[in-house]
Simulated assay, not measured.
Amino acid sequence: MSDDSAWQRPGPGGELGPESAPPAVPPVGYSGPPPSDPPPADWRPPTYVQPPPPRQLAPQDVDKIEAQEKEARTLTYGVALVAAAVLVVLSCLLCSRVLF
């Protein structure tokens, strides 16, 4: 069967030639995955270096962590209050400029 046989015109009677016959229909349904062979027992490379055991984590001072979080929260609230005050002052200036 040539590459162009699918694009050829049918014969004079409208029948297809033996070269351009449609391909066979595959069976309906799923027949499952193809069979596979298990890998050989020694398929992994040998391991020569053993990693060291994990180290101990440093002890944590929970009271110190809580104090630092409280200081950070206070600083964050302070910065937010200053920013809000600046925005209020600016909006008052802009509104007074529009009104007067």
Rank of each mutant, 00 (worst) to 15 (best):
P51I: 01
S91I: 06
T74I: 10
A85L: 08
A80S: 12
K70Q: 12
L81S: 07
V88Y: 04
R73F: 08
P53Y: 05
R44G: 00
P46R: 01
G78M: 08
V86S: 03
V86K: 01
R55L: 10
A80E: 12
K64F: 07
V62Q: 14
T74W: 08
K70W: 06
D61Y: 02
P52K: 02
W43S: 02
R55Q: 14
V89E: 03
E71P: 01
A41S: 09
P52C: 01
E69I: 10
A58Q: 13
V49E: 04
A41C: 01
T76G: 12
R55G: 14
Q56D: 14
E71F: 03
L57M: 10
Q60E: 10
T74A: 15
A85S: 14
Q50R: 13
V62R: 12
A41F: 00
A67H: 11
P40D: 00
Y48W: 11
P53E: 09
P40K: 01
E69P: 01
P51M: 00
V79R: 13
V49D: 09
L57H: 11
A67W: 06
V89A: 14
A85T: 12
T74N: 09
L57I: 05
D61G: 03
P53F: 05
V79S: 09
P45Q: 01
Q68L: 12
Q68Y: 06
L57C: 06
D42L: 05
G78L: 07
R44M: 13
A41E: 02
A58G: 08
E66K: 12
R44E: 02
T47G: 03
A85P: 02
V82K: 03
E71I: 07
P54A: 03
Q56F: 06
Q68M: 12
T74Y: 06
T76K: 12
C92E: 03
C92F: 10
V79K: 12
T76D: 10
A85Y: 05
